[in-house]
Each structure stands twice: as C-alpha cells, then as structure tokens.
Design a protein around this nucleic acid. Structure first.
Lengths: 215, 215
DNA sequence: TAGATTGTTAATCGATTAACAATC
DNA sequence: TAGATTGTTAATCGATTAACAATC
C-alpha cells in the first residue's frame, strides 16, 4: 500500500490527528484544507499534499469529512490496533509513562514494568506490578510485547536493548541518552529530553530580540 | 553574531555535543570530520557545513580539537551559563524532571516546583519544595526564572502559559499536548510524548519487512 | 615539502508552495 | 449550472552532498 513516505510527513500526522480530534469533539462535520490550514498555521497546499500520500480522502467542492479523515489518519498510524508495551526502568519517568492514562486510551497498554532496584519489588502502578529485570526473558516468552520503552540510565540501555532485540521485541521507545544500535528490522523512536532542552537554550540565547541588538 | 541558522542545524547541535563529550571522556584529542562522520553516521560534508555556520573551528590537515569544539558548541547552545528553571505540575513527569541530576550539571537548575494539588504541599524534591500555584506570581517577582517547564494536563496549560508570559517568563518547555499560542518574543520547545509514540506506531505498521510482503 | 583535511562553492536532491484543471 | 475545493503537476525554495582549491 502506501510506501516511501518521508519522515517529515509522518511527523506531521499526529498533529493532524490531534486537530481533527478537537474538531470532532466540537461536532464539526466537514473542513476544507484552507480552514484547517488557518487553524494549524501550515499551508493548505501542504495539508493536501500530505494527505494525498495516503489516498484521496477529500471531495472537490466539499472538503474533508472530519470523522472520516480522523479515522483514516488513525488507521494509517495504527491507532486501530492494540499495542502491548512494557516499560524498563520504573523510576520517575517510567512511572510517569505507566500513569499516563491517555496512552491506554490510544491503545498502548502497559502490561509490564521492570527495574533492577529491589526496593521497587512488589510495587504496583495502575495494577501493573514492577518485576525484576531478570524476569524479563520469561515474561517475553509468555506475553506478546509490541513496544518496549527504555527509561533507564544510558549505561544500561544499550545492553538491555540488545537483550530485547534478541528476545524478539522489535520496537523500542528510547528515552536513554544514547543512539541505539539495532538491526534494520527493529524500529526505534527516541525522546532525548536533554537535546530538547539544549535546543530551547539555543533559541533563548538567539531569539529575534537579541539579534536586533547586534545588527 | 551567528544568525539565520536553520532549526535543522540547531537540532543536530546537541548530538554533536554528546559525541564530542564522549570523545573527551575517552581522552581523544583531535578528530576529523570524516572520523566523526563514521561514528555518527552522517556525512562529513554535513558536519563541516553545520560547524561553519558558527565559525571555522577546524584546521586544515589536522581536523578539530575535541576539547575546543566541545566548548564552542556548548557556548553556542548557552551551556556556559546557568538557567533557572521552574516546573509547573509536580506529578510524575514533573518529579522526574526535578530528579534528573544531569540537567543541573548542564546548568539548568530547578529552583521551584508548583502544583494545584494540596496533597503535594510540603513535599520536597531534591531540596526544592512544592509550592501551590497561587504562590507563583510572588515567586516570579522575587526570583529570576529563565525557563518554565509545563508538565500539567493540557486543559490548564494554556492558561498557565499566558500567566507566565504576563509575568515575564519568556521561555517555555512544553510537555502538555497542545500548541501554545504565545507572543513572538517567547520561545517554546514542545515535547509531545503521544506524538512520538504515534510516530513509532506508524513505523511499526510500515516497517521495511512488511512492505516487502506487499511488493 | 607532501599529505591531510578544512572551508566553501557548486551540484543535487528533496520538501514545500503555487497554480490550475478536474470534478463534486 | 455556478461555486468551491480537491488532487496533482509544475515551480520554488531550502537542505544535503559532492567537489576542490586553500592551507595547515
């Protein structure tokens, strides 16, 4: 079906999905690319180009049906199926993910939490108990795991990622501050918080304001 | 000084900084763009282009001095100065940020935590006590705050952002799932976790493997 | 000096925007 | 039917890569 879509387009899909979800909540039935473009502050041209990568969801003279387009984009991103997720590293960040009710609503269900800290043994978060990392292998043999979130220090993340891949997990949501080296069939999405913070810092130091002073 | 640098370049700076930091730890003194390119899996050309946006940090026939380049990139990103940060929303995610020792090492010092939940009143995280949100204004009048991290539900984030901007905070690290509308002089960097997860989900559904089956 | 490697210009590639014929 | 708006092709813009003269 769809193929060769650039990551630039993929990154925009969740944002379309979010705006369409809001329109849906507001009971808006249809929307044209130019109306949506005004709301989202992108060009109408880009919206039409992006959507047409996946199919002609609109209708000339009418625009797009909000509900339909929302569902289609959801389907494209796999929102119509459940993803079983485990979280490795049950510290603050891991617990934050486990407590995030919205993920479950989106079909990302956390079925396991793992850590090496014995103090966490027995602790449960939203009904999911924290297991020790050495139980991981057995757990993976008994349960289908679609995604593993790595919320542990970078020193351990590389080794754990290798272990996961060996045990058949082939999608990793990586919060550790390193670039994972994985086989080609494994999908990795990284969230590097400190990179994000540094980008913010750069933009603080170089905001328009400041530059005017220079010129 | 430097100006009109594209965000594509800015986004890569933290990664250069990370690799150079690792080289520094390994006591590597100099590195050429082609060596670095092999490690980072980007083209040497891109590295040289990126760096030359900010100045000629290298030397023909020699390459780049690791320590020097590390410091320069750090300086460009503002790592040479302290940033006072507050976190609004002291739930799991807010606490995770507050507990993240590395940020402080990078010069991002959390000087305040705020929440609306009275149950958190009196709680301290790494020596910083959680204050009630209605104390925010007074706090901002007494303290210099460079960055506010928003780790609260999206329902409240818009209003809080407006309040912050009014009170003179002009950099926001936004974790709430909405696009903040702020005046031009305010810098916003957003981390949308569910967008990231959806992008992962898309890439799971459309990995190379699967496509081969289609063709 | 000869070899290595930068800084920088030119060429290519890809992504965004504009334009408009097709069509609801 | 006339008006609106898509889908899609063509034009533009920007980012990446290649090439090479400058120079350490």
């Amino acid at each position: 079906m769809e193929k060769g879509i650039s990551q630039a387009v993929i990154r925009r899909l969740p944002r379309y999905y979010r705006y369409l979800g809001e329109l849906l909540e507001d009971s808006v039935e249809r929307i044209s690319s130019s109306e949506l473009s005004a709301r989202m502050r992108v060009t109408a041209s880009q919206i039409r180009q992006d959507l047409n990568n996946f199919g002609g969801f609109g209708q000339q003279g009418y625009g797009y049906n909000v509900k339909n387009l929302y569902d289609e984009i959801g389907r494209i991103m796999g929102m119509n199926q459940q993803h079983n997720m485990i979280v490795i590293g049950a510290g603050n960040l891991g617990q934050a993910l486990a407590n995030y009710v919205k993920f479950e609503k989106m079909g990302f269900v956390i079925i396991g939490l793992f850590d090496v800290n014995p103090a966490l043994h027995g602790v449960s978060i939203r009904g999911v108990k924290v297991r020790m990392l050495d139980e991981l292998k057995e757990f993976l043999q008994k349960n289908r795991v679609d995604i593993a979130a790595l919320t542990m220090p970078k020193e351990k993340a590389g080794k754990v990622a290798n272990m996961l891949v060996e045990l058949g997990v082939n999608a990793i949501w990586n919060f550790a501050h390193l670039d994972l080296e994985v086989p080609e069939h494994v999908v990795v999405e990284s969230v590097h918080l400190s990179d994000s913070l540094m980008q913010l810092s750069y933009n603080i130091a170089n905001r328009e304001d400041e530059r005017k002073n220079k010129k």
